[in-house]
Amino acid sequence: MDMMAVATIEHDAELMLRVREGDSQSFALLLAKHRAPVIHFLYRMIQNQAVAEELAQEVFLRVYRSRASYEPTAKFTTWLFRIASHVALNHIRDGKHERNQESLDQESDEGMSRQVASEAPTVEQRMVREAKFEEIRQAIELLPAKQRAAVLMHKYQEMEYSQIAAALECSESAVKSLLFRAYETLRAKLAHMAGRE
């Protein structure tokens, strides 16, 4: 872990301790820093932006409500993603994880048009990219929820095994096993994309 990372940990924990003392400005700073990672994680878990934002609100509300009992025993990000994982896994477990077909179509269209907008590709290129995007999305969606959470934290948040283990409340070896199985599945589904545009 480099010095910059250590400084970041201390800074976040320090901000959270200030929130505990009633400084809401520090909460706004923490929110500004972690808003996007949390929402993006939840979006990739649930694959519905509106629900992801709703769940992210729940996450930050829980952070705020826990301020009085907050102790900087773990890295702030780990603690935050433990809450986020809980919220996402509970949401999926409770069977609320239904993608609304209407919003799915809308999301995919919007997401894909955003992806291609800046590069102005040909229709063919665009279709290839859309198909690729959909394939990746589906491959991740089909992973078991805990494997999905582990992969998303590993890939997009660049969290270490120990942090993912703390966030998912399991052992490091369990995380390695989760990740290995998840990547095996993804490799089987996505490896054919090698060299493809």
Partner: peptide, 9 residues
């Protein structure tokens, strides 16, 4: 690389 292509909303 494929996962990198999945941009967030």
């Amino acid at each position: 690389a494929a996962m990198d292509a999945w941009e967030a909303e």
